[in-house]
Each structure stands twice: as structure tokens, then as C-alpha cells.
């Protein structure tokens, strides 16, 4: 009897840790399943603030704005000329890089404006394609500019910038894209 009592006393109270890994595994699987790592990608825009009826919108010279109209049938009108989505990129680049030479295009890159106007029945997909072409036009200009500064591309230049440093390329070639006011009474 004395032997048994001695043995019992010696045993320490222990929580079994062998199942710890299983518990952790279960939790891990739960979080693995619920996690969505995919990042949202898209075309970023800043909408114009709401128009104040008393304040007139700033005047824009006709030559500085490149008007893109897309109608309900999906037809593209570039500065009043029937055109196609594929032509937009080149036209935007000519317009922005004109530097005041051709009187039909912009005076300077900082004054150049691209205006997109759509109809209520315009397919959304076509609008995105148009937006994409306009942005790609600017991206290509920025890429060229960045290569001139000794970077591989614009993305490289962007990542080399400090947190609140001025983006010189965008300052020189600002992307000024305007979404035209919808027609009232529609």
C-alpha cells in the first residue's frame, strides 16, 4: 500500500498537449477557407464635386479639350469624326503631346483635357474600353518619360518616390479626364 500511495503523490497534474496541434489545425483550416487574398484591381477615377448652380464651371478652350462621345449603338465620335475605340489611344497622345503646334489640338500638356460623354444606353463595357484606352495613352507617355529619367518604366519611377514627394512625371503630364455631365431631363 505504501508503494502505491507514494507513486500517486509523485504524479503531477498535466494538461495533454498532444491535441493542441489538432485544435490549431482546425482553426487554421477555417481561416484558410474564409480568407480572400485577391486584391481589387480596376481603373481609378476621381469624380468631379457636385456642381454649384451659382458657380459657373471653369472655361475650357475648345482646342484644349478632346471630346469623345459614345452613343447608344456603341459608335464612337472623336472630335465630331466617326471613329473607333482602337483609334482613341493614338488620338489622345497626339492631343496631349501637341505642345501648341497644331491648332486643332491642345496648347500644352497641362491644359489638355479629355472629355468622355456617354448616353444612357451606351454599353458599360465600351465605356470601360474607352476609359482604358485613354489611361493607356497616358501610361505610355509616362513610361517614355520615366525611361528618359533612367527608370525601366513608370511603375519603377513610382515606387522610387518617397511617400509625399511630388510626382514630377504626373505634374508634367497630368491625366485630366473629365466625365461629362449627363444631359438633364433624360
Amino acid at each position: 500500500m505504501g508503494v502505491l500511495a507514494k507513486k500517486k503523490e509523485r504524479r503531477e497534474a498535466e494538461i495533454p498537449t498532444s491535441s493542441m496541434a489538432d485544435i490549431a489545425f482546425l482553426l487554421l483550416i477555417f481561416f484558410l477557407v474564409t480568407t480572400t487574398i485577391d486584391v481589387d484591381t480596376g481603373i481609378g477615377m476621381t469624380l468631379p464635386p457636385e456642381l454649384d448652380e451659382k458657380v459657373e464651371p471653369p472655361p475650357v478652350k475648345e482646342r484644349n479639350s478632346l471630346a469623345i462621345l459614345i452613343n447608344s449603338a456603341g459608335q464612337v465620335l472623336l472630335e465630331d469624326l466617326p471613329s473607333s475605340v482602337a483609334q482613341i489611344r493614338q488620338e489622345v497622345q497626339i492631343h496631349v503631346q501637341n505642345q501648341g503646334q497644331d491648332p486643332r489640338y491642345s496648347e500644352s500638356p497641362t491644359k489638355a483635357l479629355v472629355s468622355i460623354k456617354t448616353d444612357r444606353q451606351t454599353p458599360y463595357n465600351l465605356y470601360i474600353q474607352t476609359m482604358d484606352e485613354v489611361w493607356m495613352a497616358y501610361f505610355e507617355i509616362w513610361n517614355t518619360e520615366a525611361r528618359g529619367l533612367g527608370f525601366a518604366n513608370y511603375q519603377d519611377y513610382r515606387s522610387s518616390l518617397e511617400e509625399d514627394a511630388v510626382n514630377e512625371i504626373r505634374k508634367k503630364w497630368p491625366a485630366q479626364i473629365s466625365i461629362a455631365e449627363p444631359d438633364p431631363g433624360e
Binding site: 481589387d40 484591381t41 480596376g42 481603373i43 481609378g44 477615377m45 476621381t46 469624380l47 468631379p48 464635386p49 457636385e50 470601360i128 476609359m131 482604358d132 466625365i179 449627363p182
Partner: peptide, 18 residues
């Protein structure tokens, strides 16, 4: 978009895929 402007939320993103 007109509603977003009225609400003052001007930073938007047209979500699209590669």
C-alpha cells in the same frame, strides 16, 4: 455616380479584371 457626387464620395474605382 451622380448620387456619389451628392454624397461627397469622389474617389471611385471601376473594378475590372486583367
Amino acid at each position: 455616380q451622380q448620387e456619389l457626387r451628392k454624397g461627397g464620395t469622389l474617389r471611385i474605382n471601376y473594378s475590372s479584371k486583367r
